[in-house]
Structure formats: structure tokens, C-alpha cells
Design a protein around this nucleic acid. Sequence first.
DNA 1: TAATTATATGAACATCGTTTATTTGATGAG
DNA 2: CTCATCAAATAAACGATGTTCATATAATTA
Lengths: 212, 212
Amino acid sequence: MGITERKQKARLAMRTLILDTAMRLFLEEGFEKVTVRRIAGAIEYSPATIYLYFRDKNDILFALHAEGFDRFYRLQQTVLQVKDPWERLRMHARVYISFALENREYYDLMFIMRGPVEKLKAARDWSVGIRSYDFLKENIRDCMAAGYLPKTEVDVAAFAIWSFTHGMASLIIRQRCAMISPDLLSSVVDGAIDFMTARIEKGKMIGKGRRK
Amino acid sequence: MGITERKQKARLAMRTLILDTAMRLFLEEGFEKVTVRRIAGAIEYSPATIYLYFRDKNDILFALHAEGFDRFYRLQQTVLQVKDPWERLRMHARVYISFALENREYYDLMFIMRGPVEKLKAARDWSVGIRSYDFLKENIRDCMAAGYLPKTEVDVAAFAIWSFTHGMASLIIRQRCAMISPDLLSSVVDGAIDFMTARIEKGKMIGKGRRK
DNA sequence: TAATTATATGAACATCGTTTATTTGATGAG
DNA sequence: CTCATCAAATAAACGATGTTCATATAATTA
């Protein structure tokens, strides 16, 4: 059936056109510019048309949310270049923070905003997120195997480490760091990562010369 | 001047009436019920009246924000009962999390929401928040003095620890913990606190019997 | 060519935060 | 006591928002 196939293609093209436009508004003009009417205006369609392709606005936000996780995952994979598990975990934290700070709108959408997530029940909708989380857990397992971390429950350690990095990112993005002077902020963040990783590392006082 | 004094009192009474009502809507019916019109309706005034007492909606949110910090600070002080600095710091983390999870709307307002904070520049508007932060720093200093933590920069350590607890709280409140089964969540949180504090503690492998 | 179906839209609805012109009610002066 | 003055309260409106629905247009099928 060539005809229904073409229609499906057109339908999908329209969906991605809407998404790309929404994304562009998001990145270029920031948060509040993403309104159904503005998206429609940018592609020169009526606002009502949007609703032929997305159930509601959160449906659009969720699609961007998924796209964000995809970008995040790809960036995250670059830490695989680092062979030593411990250094890789440290790199992991730094990459996480820099993604968050250089893609604030995305990060907000993915990890902070209420909208995209609230009408979503199925676990499979989280698959892109869980993939990244599993990657972190794998890294932690490697650290445990190599003796950098004690062999505790991986889920607990992963949640703890994730919470730490997410905490920094979200405090900065949502501007709760007034007590830290802006020009010191990035060095405090680096310092915090160093502090945490140095503190977390297993049995560093014993010193069998494990580190290079 | 008895007359202007009475007027000032009436004015303040109206302000607190509005705030209390906004607060009640917040706590009883959750987030989205706090609208200027609904607040006005609840106290049986016109919406326009609200604007005689608050510049805009964020002005109201900010007042609640401040009230939240006050509650938070008072709860936080209870950790002073714990004499040992290290145990006090651990208690600090647990108290932080339980405040966040038992007062989600408040916590959201204080540490996550964009609204209350965005039109606020003056440092003194943060004073209630900074007071709590200073309290944490004091605790960390005590831990360093007692040898539980290395003597690094207090600001860095405080930011790191705060980020960790805030990270957990905000991930849970904004529902980003789909990968952790809900009935395990609280034990994972406890586990994460244990993991972090156990890992963070200075020189625990040397064991000079410092701990009781 | 006529009937059917998918696509697009204009206009409307309800709601939001906010502003302005107007009315109400209390206070002070003559 | 009456009238002018001033602050408090409001009704009505403005410009937004997300969303829906009846209608019109274009494409496909019979």
C-alpha cells in the first residue's frame, strides 16, 4: 500500500517538524517561549493543528524529554575512553554536570520540570532514562570490582552518587546558590566533585600504591 | 497616632489572612490550586484586592517561601540535641530529607520552583536560607575540628553535602525515581545516607578508636 | 463525477495573572 | 450634621494560556 505509507510518512514528518520547532524555541529563546500558539505560529499552522499530532502540550514536552536523554546518553558514552574505572567515574560526574549546565533547558525538562513526566505511567517511557542509569551502575560495579569502592548494593551507591550530581545541577539551574558568589561557583562545583570522589574512594588511607 | 496604627494593623492582618489562605490551599489541595482568583475566592474578596497587599503572585509565593525556611530552620535546630558532631551531621541529613518528604509543597517552593525566586535580587531576601546553610557549615566545621572530616574548605564540603541531600529530595519530589520501586525507596534513601556518610568519614580505615 | 474521508482552521471556552476606572465606605473639616 | 477627602474594594476588561468543536478545504475512493 503506497498511499497509506506515504500518509504515515507525512504524518511523521509533521510530528518531527513540530518537535524540531518546539526544540528550537526551547534552545534559542528559552523556557517560556514554548507555547502551543508560538510553535504553531513558527511553522505557520493553526494552533488547533498541533492537536492533530499531539494529544496535549505535555505530550510534546515528553518527546523533547526523550530526545534530551538520547543526547545525554551519547555524551555519556564518551567516558568509556577512560579505562581506569575510578577515573571514569570521576569523569562521569564531570560530564554529567557539564551536560546539565550547557543544556539547562534540556536538563530541566529531563530531571526537574513537572510537565513532561506527570501524565506518564508506563515503565517503558523511562527506558531512555534507565539506560543511562544502568550505564552508571555498570561503572560503579567496575569500581567495586577494581577495589575502588566497597562491595555494597549497587543501586544504593548509584542513587547516592546520582543524587549528588543532580543536586548540584538542579541547585544551580534553579538558582538556589545565592550564598556562593557566581564567579566562584564553577570552582566550588569542581571542588565538590573532588571532595566527594576523594572522600568516597575506598580505603585510601591504607595506600598499597594501587593508584598510578 | 491611634488611627494610622490601627490601619497598619488591619493591613498586616489582611496580608497574613491572604498568606494563611494561600498556604492552606497549598497544603490541602496541592500545587495548582494556588491561584490568585482562588485565594481571593477563599477569603471572599475580589481578585483585585489581593494586589493591594502583594505586588504580584510571586510576591505571595516568596512570603510562603520565607515561612518555609523558618519552619525548616526550627526543625533543623533539633539536631543540636546530638552532641557528637559526626552523628549530628548524619542526623542533619536525615532531618533534611524528612522535612523535604513530609512538606513537599514547602520544599518545592523553597528549593525547586522557579516562581518565588526569580524576581528577587537582594541578598537579604535569602537571609533565612543562608541562616540554615550557615548552620550546616558550623556543623561541618565541628566535624573537621573533631577529626571526622579533613580540614578542607568548608564551603566546598557544605555544598557537596547539601547537593547530595537536595538531590535525593528533589528527585523524589519531582518523580524521577521510576527505576526504584516505590516500596523500596525509603530504604534506598536511608541506605544512600549511610553509604555517603560512611564513605565520607575521614580515615575510618586507620581506626585509632576515635569513635565511641 | 459524486461520495467519503482525512486534514486544517476560525472561533470559541475556560482559565490564568494583572490593570484600570469606578464605586463604596470610613475619616476629618466646616 | 453635612460635605469633602481619602483609602479600600471591586467589576470589568486585557492579553495571555491550553484546549475543543463545528466548519471548511483538500485528497482519496467508489
